[in-house]
């Protein structure tokens, strides 16, 4: 065997472990989603019949999916802008050479230690309708269908604070001191300096972060599972919540098409991320 052939063989051999997992748990299930979406199963899963592509239109245009998209979309709007603003606020506050600033930086990044489940339990303490500390605050009451999603969103905002802070701070620290000094010499005040100089310089970081937060929000499930069980009146049934609860044979076809819908949405957002990153790799810094 030639040296080249041996090298190629080794290359494939090294890819095999990953390739097996990817084929088995990423690409095969993607194919299965389409098969499932094209068939309707009976209640026990013992028989299925072909329902065809029209099923896709029915589900994606149907009440359940649209409701899931609306709730998930609202969730994105509740969590992403607020999360970004708070993250920037924390990072700007902690990006100072002050005594003890490391302690504050540690505190601000501390919510990284909290998983979605832990954050949800912590917000049970704050928002649970029976025992929550803020149970009587109407603006994000978990017992009112009009406000429950806000309460759930609040737990996500808090949970993501640490990550947002850490990333924005890294962005701020990459801004050279000279830039700020030059702006000061030009007579810029602190507020104008921030909005006209700092913010544009860290905007790629913020874009990246926005995409990450959007993807987190698209995958929201545990928060609703723990805090509200999808209620009240289904007002916190996110897309993933609906997919998760469509695992019975009779619902599977619908669940599969909704999952493909979620895939489509994720794809668009991820592509946006790639475009941003790509541009930064070529022209950034």
């Amino acid at each position: 065997m030639t040296r080249r052939a041996r090298e190629a063989l080794l290359g494939y051999a090294l890819l095999v472990p990953s390739a097996i997992v990817f084929a088995w748990f990423f690409f095969y299930p993607l194919y299965r989603l389409f098969v499932m979406g094209l068939h309707q199963q009976n209640r026990t899963g013992t028989a299925e019949r072909w329902v065809g592509w029209s099923h896709f239109g029915d589900v994606l245009g149907g009440e359940q999916f649209r409701e899931g998209v609306r709730i998930t979309g609202t969730y994105v709007l509740y969590t992403v802008p607020l999360g970004l603003v708070l993250g920037v606020l924390l990072a700007v506050a902690a990006n100072r050479r002050l005594k003890g600033i490391k302690v504050f930086q540690m505190i601000f990044s501390s919510t990284i230690a909290s998983s979605v489940a832990v954050a949800s339990v912590i917000f049970v303490v704050l928002l649970n309708p029976q025992i929550g500390y803020f149970a009587s605050v109407k603006m994000f009451s978990l017992s009112d269908p009009d406000t429950a999603l806000r309460g759930v969103a609040l737990s996500s905002v808090w949970q993501n604070l640490g990550l947002t802070f850490v990333i924005v701070l890294a962005g701020l620290q990459a801004v050279p001191d000279e830039v700020d000094e030059a702006a000061t010499l030009d007579g810029y005040g602190p507020v104008r300096r921030f909005f006209r100089v700092t913010l544009p310089l860290i905007s790629p970081t913020l874009m990246f972060l926005a995409v990450v937060l959007v993807i987190f929000a698209l995958q929201a499930f545990a928060q609703a599972d723990i805090l509200t069980q999808g209620g009240p009146l289904g007002s916190t049934e996110t897309l993933v919540w609906k997919i998760f609860n469509s695992q019975q044979p009779v619902d599977q076809g619908t669940g599969a098409v909704m999952a493909i819908g979620l895939f489509g949405i994720t794809l668009v957002v991820s592509l946006a991320q790639f475009l941003i990153l790509d541009r930064r790799v070529h022209y950034g810094n």
């Binding site: 993933v240 999952a259 994720t266």
Partner: peptide
């Protein structure tokens, strides 16, 4: 682009 949430049901 294939988070576990998407492929959950068949997996």
């Amino acid at each position: 682009m294939l988070p576990i949430e998407v492929t959950l049901i068949p997996n």
